[in-house]
Design a protein around this nucleic acid. Structure first.
Lengths: 137, 137
DNA sequence: ACTCCATTTTGTAACCTTTACAATCTGATA
DNA sequence: TATCAGATTGTAAAGGTTACAAAATGGAGT
């Protein structure tokens, strides 16, 4: 509680119970949830929660650099509160999104082909370690 | 004309005027268009064209490995018929999507962190060369 | 603690891209 | 040329996100 309250205050975001819960959920569940998943999970404890609040808070956290959006599929945004740089793997077997800590040369380059690079997003598709271990080879 | 007819036949895709036009458009416009952009452009010459045909053809070309989908923003798929590997830059000034030919280490690795990598997608956000030249520094 | 006000939350409806579906049409083969 | 599986079309539905207005609430100042 204290931790998330501090984060919001440090970024000049007005503190509300909804924002605290959303921030806590994102920080304790690194599953790259969709807005809908966050909504349904938090609604268990707060049935009055509105989906608009989810989106508003996501926007607010994003504006303050506390949240990244992952667009794997066209209709489905996923959110990631781990803001240090890493790539992501979408497992085609289990559908999970998995963090991959990598040495990517582009995170250090600021220019590529004459263009200025501000953000680097690496998305992989494949099969995760767990799914490889169970059925595959 | 001959070129696109040949491509379709080689991939066992039934040849129709709509598919030929869509394939030609994608091959001659490397602007990473949305489905809507393809639709409105081709409708100028064929007012009877249906948007469903655009999506059906996109699906068909994708299934045969002739087309890649780019998901920069939620709700906005862009399509790329250049299937050799390259990364993309979304310019935050002009909004254009620009191809970046890069030496990416992950295109050669098949395993990362124990996970199997099948596809690599590199998305950058930044400011393109042209926009840097005009206003920026 | 109380008041006030800007901000936030809520609920509903609108928005937009994509998909589903059924009827019509058409390309390729015989 | 006849046939039929597959393609195209138009409409409607689906699904995630956004817009909006009314009600509520957090935080500063008293």
């Amino acid at each position: 509680m204290e931790k998330y309250l501090k984060i919001l205050r440090e970024h000049g975001i007005k503190v509300t119970p909804q924002r605290l819960e959303i921030l806590r959920f994102l920080d304790t569940h690194h599953t790259h949830p969709t807005a809908d998943e966050i909504y349904h999970e938090l609604r268990k404890k707060n049935p009055a929660l509105s989906k608009t609040t989810i989106y508003n808070t996501i926007q607010s956290l994003t504006d303050h650099g506390l949240l990244h959006t992952l667009n794997f599929r066209t209709h489905e945004a996923r959110f990631d509160s781990v803001i240090n740089h890493h790539h992501h793997l979408l497992c085609s077997e289990c559908g999970k999104v998995i963090d991959i800590e990598v040495e990517c040369p582009f995170t250090k380059e600021k220019i590529a082909g004459g263009h200025r690079i501000d953000e680097v997003h690496g998305y992989f598709r494949g099969v995760c370690k767990d799914c490889l271990g169970i059925g595959g080879k």
